[in-house]
Amino acid sequence: MPVTPEANSELRRIARQLRLTVIDVMAWSGGAHVGGSLSCMDLLTALYFKYLKIDPERPDWEERDRFILSKGHAAAGYIPVLSERGYFPHALLKTFNHFGSPFAMHPDSNKVVGCDVSAGSLGHGLPIAFGMGLGFRYQGRDNKVVCLLGDGESCEGSVWEAAMAISHYKLTNVIPIVDRNGLMIDGTTEQVMALEPFADKWRAFGFDPIEIDGHDFFQIGEALDRAWAAKDRPVVIIAHTVKGKGVDFMENQIPYHYAAGDSVLCARAKASIENAYKEVD
């Protein structure tokens, strides 16, 4: 179902709140992968507040769609989404990274209610998504499996092992989304290990690539609608995003891949987010 202007405003309001929470988590946790959490926030918001068939009241509901945060370091973005969606109380986020907390730098399905798969070691998510897709199809179930990858993560060979297999088995129930923010720790993806022509790589592996602006809910919605409806060829969504999106001084800045924030920095960051969303109120 396409994103209406009303839905767009609502999703933007949610995304603003979530971006503010990421800044809180950065403070509470003592440091977070803030850049990559902000770059995928609009994708996560669209999935969890519109597209995924889920029920926070029944986190183990068999009919639910599955989501794998293969770029597990974006837990500082993902965990607040689960909280906002109602899987656990917001106050629990204050424990992030601390002894005994369910929340760490990478999400843990043994500990986090609503988290389907533990992730953090890059290149693991898509093979698991492939197995889930295969398992659902074998059982005649129509659950979707959405897997969010980082673009830098795409250097891992296992991503392509799984891509080959998803396409070989024509698993249109598996939907990979790549957060193409263009930055890795040591530089741009093209400096460190060139990915381009990235869409052609996926095309060569048998996918139907859809390239979008990963911060535009209308485009995100259109791409997800196409992915949900795919019949013969699996869709991959390459979402062009901005690392650090929403905080002007973090945008496209490698030092904010992982950063700690004191109260001054967090206040500046929040002011910047409020400013970026002036139109939604």
Binding site: L126, G131, L134, G135, A162
Partner: peptide, 18 residues
């Protein structure tokens, strides 16, 4: 195919579906 990382990742995924 000849892809052992995918083999065991996929096995985990299938187990997750019951």
């Amino acid at each position: 195919g000849i892809a052992e990382q995918d083999l065991f990742g996929a096995a985990a995924g299938m187990a997750k579906t019951g």
